[in-house]
Simulated scan of single mutants.
Amino acid sequence: MKSSKRKKEEVALSKSKVPVQQLKDSEFFGRKGFSLKETLKTKSGIIAEFKRQSPSKGIINDKVSPLEVASAYENSGASAVSVLTDREFFGGSFDDILSIRNHINIPVLRKDFMVDEYQFYEAKSIGADVILLIAACLSPQQVQEFTALSHELGLEVLLEIHSQEELKHISNDIDFAGINNRNLKDFKVDLQHSVDLKNKLPEGILSVAESGIYSEKDFKYLKEKGFDGFLMGEYFMKDENPGNKFTAFISNVTI
């Protein structure tokens, strides 16, 4: 994947500027994280995303602040906040997590193309609680190694898959299996494909439906099919006030 190659170049530059020991000395490195496993049970189940732009949609919303949006998400019952830290493709940065970490008391998912051990120390140093691994970017062996390192650092792991072939990346060590409803090649959304994949997951793996949830009907359908969590961003972020949009959505799906 082009994004993986670019990310490796970015990481090499970061390593040359900030050594791992400096990351370990950061304010947040020693903090005990919040658990998404717990908040999926006790709150709405929605991992609400802060996302300015995407490769498929271009600019979604670049007018609102991460803190304003994340606080509104938390106040209305989000189980976690997902934050894109990739700059080139999603317009994100570490500052987007740093600006909210001390102000919310739910997990933060660092969403990025994770291709190097160094990035997990970065994630811990900026206050992330959960990291995303993308099966399409990694081998099953890398998933296993990155999962072990994440757990050693106190981070939970959401592994994203898109196809039946990627089921081989899943082990009992990961914390959540995320199934992306959007095809990475043509960007089409197919909820039934996701349900079919979910039914092939190993017993006991918590499942998260990702992307392409564009209505209350979509959400209810996936919930009825047994998904434990729901990663949603664009549906809220395309509104000029994402927090209000999230609040209205929650009130309608929990009646």
Rank of each mutant, 00 (worst) to 15 (best):
T42N: 07
L158C: 05
S16M: 07
Q192F: 08
P66L: 13
D196I: 13
L40G: 03
G127E: 09
L155H: 00
A136K: 15
N252Y: 01
I106S: 05
D196R: 13
G229P: 02
G33W: 02
H151I: 00
Y121L: 06
N105Q: 10
G229S: 04
P66A: 04
Y221F: 15
N105H: 13
F146Q: 02
E224R: 12
L132I: 05
F120S: 08
S125P: 10
K24E: 14
L155F: 00
R87P: 03
L109V: 12
N105A: 14
K238E: 11
E10V: 14
F219E: 00
V81S: 11
D218L: 06
E240W: 04
D173T: 11
T254C: 14
G229N: 03
G33R: 15
D25G: 14
F34H: 14
K57V: 03
I161G: 09
S65L: 11
E10W: 06
H162P: 08
V143F: 01
E165H: 10
I205D: 08
G243F: 09
D186N: 15
F219K: 03
L184C: 01
K57M: 10
A80H: 04
S163H: 12
D62C: 07
E234Y: 03
L109M: 11
P202M: 09
E68W: 02
L132V: 08
P140A: 12
L155E: 00
V253Y: 12
S71Q: 14
I46F: 14
G204T: 06
G154I: 00
A135D: 08
I59D: 05
I126W: 07
V208Y: 04
E122S: 05
R110V: 05
Y221H: 09
P107M: 13
E160A: 07
A209D: 00
Q144F: 06
I106N: 11
A135E: 01
F246A: 10
L13H: 14
Q164V: 13
A80F: 12
K15A: 12
I255K: 15
H193M: 10
L98D: 02
L159A: 01
Q21F: 08
S54A: 08
S215N: 04
F90H: 12
I47D: 06
K245T: 09
S82V: 07
N61T: 11
Q119C: 06
L201M: 11
E240G: 00
L184P: 06
L132F: 03
F89I: 08
R110S: 09
D62M: 03
K5I: 15
K32T: 13
V18Y: 01
E9V: 09
I126A: 07
E210D: 03
S171T: 15
Q141I: 12
D112R: 09
L167P: 06
G58P: 12
A209G: 03
K223C: 02
L191C: 03
A48N: 09
Q21H: 11
G229T: 09
N172P: 00
G127H: 03
P242E: 10
K111V: 10
S99I: 10
E210C: 02
H162N: 15
S35N: 10
G178E: 00
G154M: 01
S93G: 13
V143M: 02
L23N: 05
